[in-house]
């Protein structure tokens, strides 16, 4: 294996490759986000005996683009009593963490470029998992800020709900991952993928089924998807934190929600399903796993009612947190003995 490409051995090549990787990942994520909205509308439509979009382009395939354009050209309204700076900042605060989390997710093995080894991953942080949790935590600031800055009581309730929800679920999600890196003995996502590389039986979903279930459920709560979509609960809070948003700012919230879904799916696939491992070339495996999780999320949205705020809290603190702790204890016992 040739030497690893780094900033010291070939700065120009390194920057070029880096930019190429970032651009590729960004475009793929944006495309998935755009077509996730399309897929969601189609799938839920079919499940509800409807058709979903059909008019824009063949099979309605241009619908996400039409939606984007429409939102782009809409008037941008900032309520007179809103806190302007925070109001403008909030959508960015929620979108950016959603996108940058994907940086630590490996989407393949190593390739050789110009005589150097290049890992198919934007950044192999040795604290990759902590970085993911940190970014997920950062995203909630956007929601809280949006709720507060809108100067709307419904939005405020949405923001408060989301803050409480995020704290309770962040904990359980974090704790459920601990058992994973207890097994892999590394915090780097690349390391975790390599630890699962020995074939399908090495995937942590089989050795850590409880952690997997906990992580998927808490992730649903973290990305505000049904049945945990309390911060936006349109029938209660009239869209909650994004009530007052319009135009491109609303589109940013919308994109962030789907980007979060993509990221959470990618992270789950990496932690529990061996990431890019599988029968096809690297990135395709990862994409298939992402699509699978996205489909499940959409499916769940079509089927389940929404839980109540106090029930959500109850579940977070009294069920998921103890279960996650228990899982750590069991894993610890197994690892030690």
């Amino acid at each position: 294996m040739p030497e690893m490409l780094s900033l010291s051995n070939d700065p120009i090549l390194f920057v070029t490759v880096m930019l190429a990787k970032i651009l590729a990942v960004f475009i793929v994520v944006i495309l998935i986000v755009a077509y996730a909205t399309y897929a969601e509308r189609k799938i839920i439509g079919r499940m509800q005996t409807r058709l979903g979009p059909t008019m824009t382009g063949p099979l309605g395939l241009l619908q996400p683009i039409a939606d984007g354009l429409k939102l782009f050209f809409k008037e941008d309204i900032i309520p007179a009593q809103a806190s302007k700076f925070a109001f403008v900042l909030a959508p960015m605060m929620i979108l950016v963490p959603a996108f940058i989390t994907i940086a630590v997710v490996p989407f393949g093995g190593n390739v050789v470029v110009g005589g150097y080894t290049v890992p198919l991953q934007i950044a192999d942080l040795n604290v990759g998992i902590l970085y993911i949790l940190a970014m997920a935590g950062l995203g909630v600031y956007g929601i809280v800020l949006a709720g507060w800055a809108s100067n709307n009581k419904y939005s405020l309730l949405g923001g408060v709900r989301s803050a409480a929800q995020m704290i309770s679920y962040e904990l359980a999600a974090g704790l459920s991952i601990i058992s994973v890196f207890m097994l892999s003995e590394t915090l780097s996502l690349r390391g975790i993928v390599e630890a699962q590389a020995g074939g399908i039986t090495d995937w942590y979903i089989f050795s850590q089924p409880l952690a997997f279930c906990l992580f998927v459920i808490t992730s649903l709560a973290e990305v505000n998807r049904t049945p945990f979509d309390l911060p936006e609960a349109e029938t209660e809070l009239v869209s909650g934190f994004c009530t007052e948003y319009s135009s491109m700012k609303y589109a940013l919230f919308f994109m962030a929600e789907y980007a979060n879904m993509v990221v959470i799916s990618a992270v789950t696939a990496t932690l529990f399903l061996g990431g890019p491992a599988g029968p096809f070339p690297g990135a395709i495996n990862l994409l298939l796993k992402i699509f699978f999780f996205m489909f499940v999320f959409i499916w769940i949205r079509a089927t389940f009612p929404r839980v109540k705020y106090n029930q959500l809290m109850y579940m977070g603190w009294k069920i998921f947190l103890p279960l996650a702790l228990l899982n750590i204890v069991i894993t610890g016992a197994v690892v030690v003995f």
Binding site: I44, M47, Q48, T49, R50, T226, P227, D229, A233, T235, A302, T303, F304, P305, R306
Partner: peptide, 15 residues
């Protein structure tokens, strides 16, 4: 059902 968040029932009933 829609108010409580189960939106699929809504369309089945309307069918």
């Amino acid at each position: 059902a829609l108010d409580i968040g189960a939106m699929t029932v809504f369309l089945y009933c309307f069918r």
